[in-house]
């Protein structure tokens, strides 16, 4: 039995007002993506989008989301993503845009990439910190993320 292959798009959501980021949830994003695909590719696109498409994970704090698409039509869905300008939630419009960071075959590879990406973001954050307390916090976060990566490597070596 061959497993069903799909592609996972790791996207970052950018909003103008960071406080509105917490309003995001998966159903609103699914609706927004489906609307965009329908408007860009018509009925054919909507049909492609209805099977095997789902929003797997939303992190409202960092604005990260995983989209699962069937392997055959992920390019079609991806090409419609730039046309998303807003997400509607409870009658309120949150203007935003999605930028794709990574395309992976499994969630695991996406997670690995995301850890690396977030460490990079922490490194970018470090020079912007104003107080010593903030600096220490960011440093600790970087350390913990890198030790996590190392632990993952050790596990892998043990298994080998």
């Amino acid at each position: 039995m061959v497993r069903v292959k799909s592609r996972y798009l790791l996207c970052e959501i950018h909003v103008s007002d960071p406080s509105k980021l917490l309003l995001l949830e998966d159903r609103a994003i699914t609706a927004a993506v489906k609307d965009a695909v329908t408007s860009a590719h018509g009925d054919y696109g909507a049909a492609q989008c209805s099977i095997g498409f789902s929003v797997k994970y939303v992190n409202a704090h960092t604005g990260i989301l995983f989209l699962r698409c069937p392997k055959s039509s992920y390019r079609l869905i991806w090409s419609a993503l730039p046309f998303i300008t807003s997400v509607e939630r409870k009658g309120r419009r949150i203007s935003c845009f999605l930028s794709c960071l990574h395309v992976g075959g499994t969630i695991r590879t996406c997670q690995k990439f995301l850890i690396r990406y977030n460490t990079q973001q922490l490194h970018r954050m470090l020079p912007k910190c104003k107080t010593q307390e903030e600096k220490d916090q960011v440093r600790r976060a970087i350390l913990s993320s890198s030790t996590y990566m190392l632990k993952g490597k050790e596990h892998k070596e043990e298994r080998d």
Partner: peptide, 12 residues
């Protein structure tokens, strides 16, 4: 700023 897109999205 909200109308900018990432480089990989543009290629697609």
């Amino acid at each position: 700023p909200l109308e900018l897109r990432g480089p990989y999205d543009i290629t697609n």
